[in-house]
């Protein structure tokens, strides 16, 4: 069974004055998927997310949330969206509990389930202790948690997070990522970021945005292979002559790193590593360690954004 599509945007365009901020952006999101929208500052990420949440009207294009047209039936469609903007929309003078129940009522959470929903949301976001606190007195990390709690309290199908981990310390980033990953299992999450490690750790799929266009989209695992020659580094304690390694099917190049370590580059889609290990066992090369070469996502990103003609 294929997962159902919860959010689909087709050919979104948005202009500010004479400038095209977003051009021809199409995005599809399935249930249980975390999509990362990656791009430099000013690439149009936030504008795209604002359009997806109905805060900003696109100049042209169509958005459907769970099959409901966002422009035609904004109220029904928005009921399925939870949105955390770049700056969390917090009323600093309110208590966390009051604020969250206001948001819940705003999203038509039924009155009799309100207390349970509130407790559950606070638990998920690690806010159990903070209910009576005034939002303005909370630290940045906790304010961000309240921001996320605000976005998920009505249990929406689609959760839109605009740079959810900006300005947090490493421990808080880790907590929030765990939470997002958890959310991604039951809901669809789309998040924008310029942190590449976030994409690497969190996202199933990546869309890279530059100058208002989507220039690359793929699963984040495949993105790491982009433009990269497959290969591995192997340690052989009793290495054979170099020529013997070069003769293995699919091997294109062997580099000697030290007496016992070799970097082997091979053609795509071959089982070279398996073949080599089998040979090693057969001929007593004493294979010890085999590490696949992985492009750092930074390199890949730079490569993709630079390949694109400006």
């Amino acid at each position: 069974m294929t997962a159902s599509i919860t959010l689909s945007a087709r050919n979104l365009n948005r202009r500010y004055g004479q400038r095209d901020i977003v051009q021809n952006v199409s995005i599809e999101l399935k249930r249980g998927e975390v999509l990362g929208l990656l791009g430099h500052n000013g690439a149009g990420k936030s504008t795209t997310l604002q359009m997806l949440t109905g805060i900003l009207a696109p100049n042209s294009g169509q958005i459907e949330v769970c099959g409901i047209d966002l422009q035609r039936h904004p109220e029904q469609a928005k009921a399925h969206i939870g949105y955390l903007p770049e700056t969390p929309p917090l009323y600093r003078d309110m208590r966390v509990d009051d604020y969250l129940s206001f948001v819940a009522k705003l999203h038509r959470v039924a009155k009799d389930g309100l207390a349970a929903t509130l407790a559950e949301t606070k638990r998920r976001c690690g806010l159990e202790e903070s209910g009576r606190k005034i939002i303005g007195t909370l630290s940045k990390g906790y304010q961000q948690r309240v921001g996320i709690a605000q976005a998920i309290i009505h249990n929406p199908e689609v959760i839109v997070l605009d740079e959810p981990t900006v300005g947090l310390d490493p421990a808080q980033i880790r907590d929030i990522r765990t939470l997002i990953r958890e959310l991604g299992d039951a809901h669809s999450v789309i998040l924008s970021t310029h942190l590449l490690s976030e994409v690497e750790n969190l996202c199933d799929r990546v869309e890279i945005m530059q100058k208002g266009r989507l220039i690359y989209g793929d699963s984040s695992a495949r993105m790491q292979q982009y433009g990269h020659q497959p290969g591995f580094v192997v340690t052989l304690l009793a290495p054979p002559p170099l020529a013997e390694l070069e003769d293995i099917a699919g091997v294109e190049k062997v580099e000697v790193l030290s007496g016992t370590r070799f970097r082997i580059l091979h053609a795509a889609d071959t089982q070279t590593s398996g073949v080599l290990l089998a040979l090693a066992a057969e001929r007593g090369w004493q294979a010890q360690q085999l590490t696949p070469l992985k492009g750092s996502i930074e390199d890949v990103y730079t490569q993709i954004t630079e390949n694109e003609p400006a």
């Binding site: 109905g54 109220e75 469609a77 009921a79 903007p85 929309p89 009323y91 948001v103 705003l106």
Partner: peptide, 14 residues
């Protein structure tokens, strides 16, 4: 100014 209007605009209210 505090960018809280986004909360109301993104909520299912007219």
């Amino acid at each position: 100014r505090n960018q809280t209007l986004a909360l109301l605009l993104a909520a299912p209210v007219h």
